[in-house]
Design a protein around this nucleic acid. Structure first.
Lengths: 202, 202
DNA sequence: CCCCTCACCAACGTTAACGTTGGAATTAAC
DNA sequence: GTTAATTCCAACGTTAACGTTGGTGAGGGG
């Protein structure tokens, strides 16, 4: 049988994503990754360097995915709402992504692997919103970058602190998921809808 | 000098909070906690059992604090906005709380230490919003539990994924914090403001 | 057909954290 | 004032993960 080093590397990477997402950088052991991938531990060190380096690769591979897989359209508040809904769906369908994102936030406070490229992806979203605001279809009550971030917050917080969501809203079944998604869509849409000035009485 | 076991336990707990918040359950070592507290490692085991038990105690102690320290008022949308702002402030002023909350979300998917009491705290918030909705001052577009959760999301996501916030909005200084807080306050207020129906064109 | 390179793995040394134990110092009880 | 109980710590055994090394066998170039 011929060597297939690319396949070996891929198996390691897939196993690493699962392990790191589940246990985090400190809870993960290289031995478990190797066993899950069906290869020897030494292969991991040879291909990816030490554990931290592998973690960085895993983050880079996985965290660019939402930007690729969930395109934005910002021609109307309804578009923003649907975008938020899709981001919510993505978090739900890819718990590994969601967990890695949060581990990154906890471990890499300062430096993020591949920050330049990630920034690009986010810039796309912000620019789409900027265009929507310029056309008047989207509310300008918030600056575009912060509106984008609010959408992420609304869509992502559920999976970030599932325990809090459960304590507030009760056990999570299919129906509850639908309810949450609906809330996300409508809330994002609200925030994107141009308003005749919100007055804050004092 | 007399024994002061309460003080010893408190020193351990304080050190444990800092260590667990910084490094998480797996990254923390009991030895470091003991050293930081200025006591012997054995004291930790004697008073708190093993590492996981101590982690549970730390979570219980720290995570009830927001509910205690940040009361809600929901007599008007402006109240909701200000509440969201205070929650934002709390996250910023107590990064340990924020980090522990997220670690809890990652590690205790199912069971949460002291869940019953935590649920009580959240219930208070939900009930305040319910009352506000009943009086008509607060929008009923979202069910009260989900509105509360949206507020938490808007206020908390910034510190949960600081790397994303930075990549979207640039470096964080005092001015940027003020901008974020303002966004949080206004967004929460918007979501709480009764609307004459949001139309979603298709 | 020979040899050199490289993927692969079993086994190893080393470090570090966990959790425990035996004993010294201190307080309280009688 | 002697004894029992308790706080505290230094030192220990044990486990487990990290990262490495020496060796084996497959592939390919001359």
């Amino acid at each position: 049988m011929a060597w297939d080093t690319a396949a070996t590397q891929q198996k390691i990477l897939t196993a690493a994503v699962a392990e790191f997402a589940e246990h985090g950088p400190d809870g993960t052991t290289v031995e478990r990754i190797a066993r899950a991938a069906g290869v020897n531990k030494e292969r991991v060190y040879n291909y990816f360097g030490d554990k931290r380096a592998l973690f960085a690769v895993v983050l880079r591979e996985e965290l660019a995915s939402v930007a690729r897989d969930v395109p934005i359209s910002a021609a109307s508040p309804g578009d923003i709402g649907e975008y938020a809904g899709r981001v919510y769906d993505y978090h739900r369908a890819h718990p590994q992504f969601s967990r890695l994102l949060r581990w990154e936030g906890l471990v890499f406070d300062a430096i993020v692997p591949d920050e330049a490229q990630r920034r690009e992806h986010y810039r796309d979203k912000v620019e789409a919103v900027t265009a929507g605001q310029r056309s008047g279809a989207i509310s300008s009550a918030h600056s575009p970058d912060q509106l984008v971030f609010l959408i992420f917050a609304i869509a992502g917080w559920w999976s970030a602190v599932p325990q809090v969501a459960r304590m507030i809203s009760g056990p999570v079944n299919e129906q509850e998921h639908a309810r949450r998604r609906d809330t996300v869509v409508r809330a994002a849409s609200e925030l994107a809808t141009p308003q005749p000035a919100v007055t804050t009485p004092r």
